[in-house]
Design a protein around this nucleic acid. Sequence first.
DNA 1: CATGAATGAGCCTTCATTCAT
DNA 2: GATGAATGAAGGCTCATTCAT
Lengths: 224, 224, 224, 224
Amino acid sequence: MSPTTTTVKRERRKEARPGELLDAALSIFVAKGFAATRVEEVAARAGVSKGTLFLYFPSKEELFKAVVRENIAGRFPEWNDELTQFEGDSFSLLAYVMHAWWQRIGMTEASGITKLVMSEAGQFPEIAGFYQQEVIEPSHALLKRILQRGIDRGELRPLNMEYAVYSLIAPMIFLLTWKHAMAPCCPPSQTIDPLGFIDTQVDLLFNGMRAQPAADAPSSPSST
Amino acid sequence: MSPTTTTVKRERRKEARPGELLDAALSIFVAKGFAATRVEEVAARAGVSKGTLFLYFPSKEELFKAVVRENIAGRFPEWNDELTQFEGDSFSLLAYVMHAWWQRIGMTEASGITKLVMSEAGQFPEIAGFYQQEVIEPSHALLKRILQRGIDRGELRPLNMEYAVYSLIAPMIFLLTWKHAMAPCCPPSQTIDPLGFIDTQVDLLFNGMRAQPAADAPSSPSST
Amino acid sequence: MSPTTTTVKRERRKEARPGELLDAALSIFVAKGFAATRVEEVAARAGVSKGTLFLYFPSKEELFKAVVRENIAGRFPEWNDELTQFEGDSFSLLAYVMHAWWQRIGMTEASGITKLVMSEAGQFPEIAGFYQQEVIEPSHALLKRILQRGIDRGELRPLNMEYAVYSLIAPMIFLLTWKHAMAPCCPPSQTIDPLGFIDTQVDLLFNGMRAQPAADAPSSPSST
Amino acid sequence: MSPTTTTVKRERRKEARPGELLDAALSIFVAKGFAATRVEEVAARAGVSKGTLFLYFPSKEELFKAVVRENIAGRFPEWNDELTQFEGDSFSLLAYVMHAWWQRIGMTEASGITKLVMSEAGQFPEIAGFYQQEVIEPSHALLKRILQRGIDRGELRPLNMEYAVYSLIAPMIFLLTWKHAMAPCCPPSQTIDPLGFIDTQVDLLFNGMRAQPAADAPSSPSST
DNA sequence: CATGAATGAGCCTTCATTCAT
DNA sequence: GATGAATGAAGGCTCATTCAT
C-alpha cells in the first residue's frame, strides 16, 4: 500500500525526543505564534516526522502547554525559594526581581511565550485560561508577597495591592510586546534598552510606593 | 424643502460602500484579529458580496490598512491642535492626555486595532511597518512635545525623552493587552479598573518626573 | 500568494450542482461505504473541486444525510399516498408493496444506502440515529398501516405488530445484504432471483398471517 | 506430578501467541468492525507489542482472514452429526435448529463475524469469497438435508429448495444485522426479542412449507 | 524472536482570491 | 459595477507498517 521509496534514517531516542520537540516548539511558536505554527515544522526542526510529534504530545495545544510548563510555569517554586531567601531592602528586592525576570524570561526566547499568549488569547480561550492559572496567578502571588514584605518592613507605604502588582507587570508586558511586535520594524533611534528602561521604571515606581520618611511631605499632588 | 434633498439612500449609494466596509472591517478585525477575520464576514456585515469588497480593496491587508488610517492615523492633527491649546500645568496635561486617550481610543473599538497590530505584527511585517510610521511615530512626537513643554515650563526635570515616552505608553499598551487578552479569562477579583489604574500611573510617573523644587523631600509650596 | 498556474474552466451551474454532487455521492458511497468514501472523489466525479462540494454540503456526514433524504427518506409521503389509494385485498397489497420496494429501492443504487447504514452504523452512531428516525420509523409506520388495514378488513388475523413488521422487513434486509455482500462472490447456482424470492416470502408470510376461515388446519370450505 | 508438567506459562509460550492474537482480534473486530479496528489495540489485548502481531500476520487483512478461519469453519461436522441423530417431526427439527443457531452463534461473539463479513465483503472480496466457501456452502447443505428429510417424511410439501433455504437464513441474517447495527439506536419499543422472533418465523415458515393435510385446501392464495 | 519508536501517506475541512456572468 | 460560484493549497491528526535495537 505505502511503498516507502526513500530509505529513512530512524534513530531511536525516546528519552531525548520530548526535550528536543519542546525546544523546537518553543522557537517556532515564538517566531510564528500559535495559530501560524505548523506542527510539521516543529517536528522537522526537531529532526523527526510529524507522526513522531504526536507520539509525545496528543495535540498542538498540548504541545504548547508543555512548552509553557517547561519554560515558565514549572519554575515558580524555584523563584519562590529565591525570594524567601533574599535579604535586603525592598528597593533592592524589586530591582533584583525585575532584573532577574529580564535575564531569565524577558531576554530569552521564553519571553515570546507570554507575548504569544497575550496575542492569541482571544482566539484560543483554553490557552488563555491555562496561562491565567499556571502563570498569571503564581506571578501575582509572588509579587504580592514581595510588596507585603516591603509593607511589613515599613519600607513601602500601604498600597492598593492589585494596582501595585499591575504597575510592576505593566512595564514588563510592554517590553515584551514591544520587543516582539514593533522592535523589528523600529528605526534604531527608537530602540529601547531594556535594562535601562527597567531601571527607570523601578525607580519611578519605588519612588511612588515607598513609605514617606516625613509625614508632611506631599510628594504627589493627588495624595493630599 | 425641495424634493432633491431626500434622494438619499436610493438602494445604497455607491459612494458609501467603502465606509460601510471599513466600519464592518473594524468591528470584525477587532473582535477576531487579522488572520482570523474572514473577508466574507466583513462583506456580509457591510451588506455586500465578497467580490465587491475586493473591488474596493485589493486585498485583506489593504483593507486593514485602510481601517487603521480611518480610525487612528487620521486623527493626529486634531489631537495636536487640542494639545497646543491646552493651558495648565504639566501634571494636569498628562492626566488629561491619558484620560482622553482612554476615552477616545482605549475604551472604544479602536483600541482593538492597536492590540491587533501588536499581536500580529510578527506575521505581517508590512502592517507593522505601516503602523510604525502612521501611528507610533506621530504618537511619540506628540508625547515628546508634552514632555518638552513641561521641561520648558520648569515643571518636569530634564528627562531621557525616549524612556519617558515609553513610560507613558507602557501602561496604555498594558491596559489594551490586558483588556483584549486576559480580561475575558480573569476572575473578577483581578479585574482592572482602567481609570483608577491610569490615575495611579500618572501619579507614580509624575512623581518621578517632576522637577524637584527643593533638593529633598518636603516639596511644600510655602518653602519656595 | 497563491498564483493560479493552471487556467481552470469555471462553470457556474448553481442549480445543477447539488443534484450532481448527490448523484456522485450516491454512487461512491454505495460502492465504497461511508468511511472509505473520499469527498474529493465525490467532487471529482461531479466534475467540481473539493472546495465546491463544501459550498453545498457542510460536511461529509451532511452530504450523506442529503443522499439519504434525496433517495429514500424524502419519498415516504409519495408512498404513503400510494398506499392510501390502494384498492384490493391485503395479499395483493403486500405483494404490491414488496415488489414496489424492489423496483424503487432494492434493485437500484439506493439499496446500497440501506446496506451501508447497516454496515457502518456501529462506527457512526449519528448516522444510525438519523437513519432510524428518517427511514426506519416511517417504514415501520407504513407497514403497520398496511397490516392494520388487513386486520380491519378481516383479511389478517390479529398479529403481534412488531414481529409482523420485522417479518416483512427481514427478507428485504436479507436481500440487500446478500446482493451487496455475497452475490459478487456467489457461484451462479446460488444466485437469488429477487422477485421470485419476494413472491415466496409474501406467500409464506401471508399464509401465516391471514385470518383463518376455519379454526384449524383443514381449511377446505367443504368441511365447514 | 513430575515437575515437567508445569513448565507451562514460562513467560508466555511462543506457540500460544497466534491463538491469543486471534482471540483478541475476534473480540475487537466484532466490536468495532474491520476498518475501525486498530492493530495496536489487538496487540495490546493479546499482551504483545504491535510489532509482534506483524510477526505472525503480515497484514491486518490476513489477521482477519485467520480469525474467520479459526472461528467458523470447523464446526459443521459436529452439527451434521447432531442432525442425523435427531428424532422427531420436521417442525420440531426446524425449531431446534434455529434455536440452536441462536444459542451457539447468534447470541455469541461469533455472530459478529458474520455481520462483519456481510458489512465489509464489498471492500474485501477475498474475504467474501473465502466466507462463501467455508461457511455459506456448508450451511446451505445442512439446511437442504433438513428440508429433504421433511419432504421424505411427508411433512413438508415439495419446495423450491434454494428459496426455502434462503427463507430460513433470511431471518437469521436479519437478526444479526439488526442486533449489531440498529439495536443500539433503537427505542426500547422497537427492541426485538430474538427467541420470540425466531419462533414466529418458524411458525410462519412451517405453516407455508408443510404438506397440506387435505389436498383441496389452498392454504396460500398463490399456490392454487 | 520481541519490541515500540518512527514514519508518512491520507483525509476532512477552511478561506483568500479569481472570474464568468 | 456587482455578484457569488468556484478554486486549490494548506494544515491537524490517524494509523498501518517498518526496522533499529
